[in-house]
Design a protein around this nucleic acid. Structure first.
Lengths: 349, 349
DNA sequence: CCGGCATCGGAGAGCGCTCTCCACCCCGTG
DNA sequence: CACGGGGTGGAGAGCGCTCTCCGATGCCGG
C-alpha cells in the first residue's frame, strides 16, 4: 500500500508511469503501442505501473505527433432552406434512413475503437465548418450522406485532399469513393413482380426528381415496364415522406381509377399510399398491389409491405471500410461499390 | 502574386502565419483567440496572413494546452444482451426517440461550434471505453441516454469526476444532473381527458417495468384514474415497440371486451394498438378512444393520434446546456430540470 | 578471445499551440 | 524633465506524447 502516486498534480502522464515502473518514457510508450520488442518482465512492470497509476494516454498529445485522431466525421449534407418548417437537424434525424446508416457505420467502427462525430452541413458556412474540422485534424476523414444530388460538399472535400466516402453516386462525376445501390435493378425487380402477379395497369409514386436515386428508381421502373409491354406508366412525384405518398396515391386513383398495382419509391410513402387506399375502400393487394422500397424495419404497415430491400447497414459499413482504407493509405484508389437489392415479398403485393 | 508560402512542408502553422505577417506567434494567437488588445493594423496584417497561408489551427495542439476539446460524447447506454436479434446499434437508431434527442442536442451544440461524438455503451467493456474516452480528453463531457434504469454508466462517470448530464432521473439517486419529463403529470393529463370524454372502462398498455419512465406513466395514470373513481385499471406490459402495442391491445380486448378507452405509454405502441383495433373491427375513437405518449412526428396514424407531448428536442437542448455549464464551471451545482408535458388532442381520443 | 551483429532501453528533439513573463513605448503627472 | 503606469508585442517555457538515434549488452562465429 505504498503511496508512490504521481507527485505531479493532475492526471498521471507517461512520465509518471515511467517513474513508477523504473523505466523511461520511451519504453512505456513502446509497451502501450506494442511497437518493437520489450523484455517480458519489463512489460509486466509497465503494466503494473499503468494499473497502479490509473494512466490513460492523452489523445491530444498523441495525435499531435501521430497526426491521427481515431475519429471520423459522419456528415449529413443537404439544403437547410428547403421546404420550411422543421429545422434541418429535426428532419434529418426523424428520417429512419439516417438511423440505419448511422447504425451501420457505428456497427463497423465501434469494434475498431473509432467513433463518429456527428455533423450537419446545410449551408455554405456549415460546409466550410466541415472542411475546417477535418483540416484542423479533428477527424481523419468523412463519411458523407447527401440528401440531394447537387451537394457541393463532396467537391470541397476532394479539392482539399481530404479522405472521404460518399453515400450514393454524386450527380456530377468527381474522383471520390462511394457506395450505392443498383436502384434500376431494384425497380426492375418490382416491375417484374407486379407483372408476374397479373397487374395490368400499374403506376408509380417517385421520389423528388432532384435526387439521383429517385430518378434511377423511376426510370428503371419505367424501362422494365416497357420491356413488359407497358410503355406508359403514370407517375407522380413525392418527397419521400408519408404524407406525399398518401396525396400521390389519391391523385393517381383519381386520374387513373383502373390502377391495380403501384411501385412506391420508398417505404414511408408506401405507408401513406396504403392509408389512402384504405380511405378509398380499396383492398390491398386484391384491388391494388403495392410495392415499396428500402425495407425499413421501422415501417409497420397493414398489410405487411412487399418491398425492395436496400441493405443500408451493410452499405454504411462498407463506406466506413472504404474510408478507413483511404485514411490508412492516401494512395488508395478511388472505388465505387454498387450493392444489389433484393425483393422481399410480404402481403401487399 | 508573391510565392511566400510556408517554406516548411505540411499544413501552415502559427509560425508560418507569424512569419508572413511579420509578427510573433503569440500575437497571431492573440488575434485568433481575440484575447487582449492588439493594434488594429496588426490584426489586419494577421488576418491577411491567415487568408494567404490558408491557416487552420491544429486542434490537437490547442487542446493539449487548453485541456479542452470542444466536443462532447453523446452516449446511448443500454443492455446489449436484451431480447436477441438485432444488434444494439440497429435497435438504438431505429427508435425515433433517439433521433429526436440527437436532433435537439445537435440543434443546441451546432451554433456553438461543438460537435457530438456518437458512442454506444452496452457492456462493461464499452462502458469503460466511454470513461476512458473522456479521461483521455477526447471529449469534455458526456450526454447520457440510458435505455433502462439500472444503468451503471452514470455512476462510473460520477466516480471518475467527469462532467455528464443524464436523460431521465437515474433509478437510484446519484449526484448527477439530469433532465426529465413529469411523466406522472403527463399520464394524469391522459386520464383526465379520457374521463372527460366519457370513457367508463379504461385500460393501459405500459412500457417495460424496468424503465422508470414507464413505471411513472403507469402509476401516474392509475392514480389519476383512482382519483376519478376508477381504482382498478387493466394494464398490460409492452416493450415500446409497435408489435407489442398490437399484441397488448388484442389481449386487453379479449380479457375486457367492454374497454372504451386506452392510454398507451408511447406512440409506437399506440400505432400498433390502432392496428389491432382496426383488425377487431372497432372504431376509434367511437368504440375505443386511444391516447399515446411522446408526440412522435414520425408516427403517422389513422386516425391521427391524440397524445401526451414530450418536448424531446427542448429537453435534449437543455441537457446540452447543462453539460456546457458543468464543463465551463467544474463547481456548477448538480441540477435537475423537470419538463411539463402537454396534451395534444387530435382525433383518436 | 575478440570483433561484429542483433537486440533492446534511454535520451532528447520536436509536434503546434497557449500563456506567463518581460521589455518596451507612450502617455500624463509632479 | 524625471518618473510611474497602462497598454502592447515578443520570448520562451511547457502541454504529453512519439520516434529517431545511440549506446549498452549479449551472443555468435572466426
Amino acid at each position: 500500500m505504498s503511496t508512490d502516486l504521481p507527485h505531479t498534480p493532475g492526471p498521471p502522464t507517461l512520465e509518471d508511469v515511467a517513474r513508477v515502473a523504473g523505466v523511461s518514457r520511451a519504453t512505456v510508450s513502446r509497451v502501450i503501442n506494442g511497437i518493437r520488442n520489450v523484455a517480458p518482465e519489463i512489460q509486466e512492470a509497465v503494466h503494473r505501473a499503468i494499473a497502479q497509476t490509473g494512466y490513460v494516454p492523452n489523445r491530444a498529445a498523441r495525435s499531435l505527433v501521430t497526426r491521427r485522431t481515431g475519429s471520423v466525421a459522419l456528415v449529413v449534407s443537404g439544403a437547410g432552406d428547403a421546404k420550411g418548417g422543421e429545422p434541418f437537424e429535426t428532419r434529418v434525424f426523424a428520417d429512419p434512413f439516417f438511423g440505419r446508416v448511422a447504425g451501420g457505420v457505428v456497427g463497423y467502427l465501434r469494434p475498431r475503437g473509432i467513433h463518429p462525430v456527428l455533423m450537419l452541413a446545410d449551408s455554405a458556412q456549415t460546409r466550410d465548418d466541415v472542411v475546417s474540422f477535418l483540416r484542423q485534424g479533428s477527424a481523419d476523414g468523412a463519411l458523407v450522406v447527401s440528401t440531394h444530388g447537387e451537394d457541393p460538399l463532396p467537391k470541397l472535400l476532394v479539392d482539399a485532399g481530404l479522405p472521404a466516402v460518399l453515400w450514393a453516386r454524386p450527380a456530377r462525376p468527381i474522383p471520390i469513393s462511394y457506395v450505392d445501390l443498383a436502384h434500376r435493378a431494384g425497380a426492375a425487380l418490382a416491375a417484374d413482380h407486379l407483372v408476374a402477379r397479373g397487374c395490368r395497369r400499374v403506376a408509380t409514386i417517385s421520389g423528388p426528381f432532384d435526387v439521383p436515386a429517385a430518378q434511377d428508381r423511376l426510370s428503371g421502373f419505367q424501362e422494365a415496364m416497357a420491356r413488359h409491354g407497358h410503355p406508359y406508366v403514370p407517375a407522380v412525384e413525392g418527397d419521400f415522406m408519408p404524407a406525399s405518398g398518401e396525396a400521390g396515391m389519391h391523385r393517381l386513383m383519381k386520374e387513373h381509377p383502373d390502377i391495380d398495382g403501384v411501385f412506391v419509391a420508398n417505404d414511408l410513402m408506401a405507408q401513406g399510399a396504403l392509408l389512402a387506399l384504405r380511405d378509398l375502400g380499396l383492398r390491398v393487394p386484391e384491388d391494388v398491389a403495392v410495392i415499396g422500397f428500402d425495407d425499413s424495419p421501422a415501417v409497420a404497415c397493414r398489410p405487411p409491405l412487399t418491398t425492395v430491400r436496400q441493405p443500408m447497414e451493410d452499405m454504411a459499413a462498407e463506406m466506413a471500410r472504404l474510408l478507413l482504407a483511404h485514411i490508412a493509405d492516401p494512395n488508395f484508389e478511388v472505388t465505387s461499390v454498387i450493392v444489389q437489392p433484393t425483393l422481399v415479398v410480404r402481403e401487399s403485393a
